[in-house]
């Protein structure tokens, strides 16, 4: 392994092909992603790990403050649930956001994102909590009646069996009818990684 200042990062010659194998990325793209990871993981604490504050900083340009959606993204990226995002977790999660990633994976990721309590269902209370969070984030206000009306309308459309919660099949049907809901599950930048982070060639140990 290299990067002696970042001993916890196991970016070994064997790790890169392994990650390329496990994801949609080529070996050179994994190396280019490492350039992005290095920037993100050193923005506050230079330890080769992405802390929640560093994710918050990248997304909101401020390290402080709480955001429900940053928490959810962080939790889903943090596969090992050890409170930090490691390089392999970063590559695994971003693979789902690649334009060529299977639609099924994007649908599943979005479902897990919105299933706040991880019960296997997106419940009405969770949707209400998320709508309140986005209203607060955007400094918008809505009366409780309007808020309930929006949620009623959404559940009338999405909750086919009318049990007050959205299961994974209902979610799939709903997003296939409303594909714009998956728009933020695709990052076009991921198709141009080696162009965006050309400095990877100085560190490359592999040829694609």
């Amino acid at each position: 392994c290299f990067e002696p200042r970042q001993p916890r990062l196991k970016k070994c010659a064997q790790e890169i092909p392994r990650l390329a194998n496990e994801t949609i990325f080529t070996t050179n793209e994994v190396e280019a992603l490492y350039e992005l990871f290095k920037k993100l993981s050193s923005s506050i604490i230079d330890d080769g790990l992405i802390h929640k504050e560093e994710l918050q900083l990248a997304l909101f340009q401020t390290p402080s403050g709480e955001n429900l959606f940053v928490d959810r993204i962080f939790d889903l990226f943090d596969e090992k649930k050890n409170g930090v995002i490691e390089f392999d977790e970063f590559v695994h999660a971003l693979s789902v956001f690649h334009p060529n990633a299977p639609m099924e994976d994007k649908i599943d990721f979005a479902f897990r994102l919105y299933d706040l309590r991880q019960t296997g269902f997106i419940e009405r209370e969770e949707v209400k909590q998320m709508v309140i969070a986005i209203l607060m984030e955007s400094d918008m206000t809505l009366s409780d009646d309007l808020l309930e009306a929006i949620i009623d309308k959404t559940f009338a459309d999405a909750d086919a069996d009318k049990d007050g919660r959205i299961n994974s099949e209902e979610w799939k049907d709903f997003v296939l009818r409303n594909p714009n809901l998956l728009k933020n599950m695709t990052l076009p930048y991921l198709k141009d990684l080696t162009t965006l982070f050309p400095s990877f060639v100085f560190n490359t140990k592999l040829e694609d």
Binding site: F69, I134, N178, N180, L187, Y189
Partner: peptide
């Protein structure tokens, strides 16, 4: 107009879910 949207359209507007910002560094 938020009232014309379904709840998930509103939610998906969060900056916290816009990961393209990760590349603005």
């Amino acid at each position: 107009q938020p009232t014309a949207m379904n709840a998930f359209e509103l939610i998906s507007m969060s900056k916290g879910l816009n990961l393209s910002n990760l590349f603005d560094i």
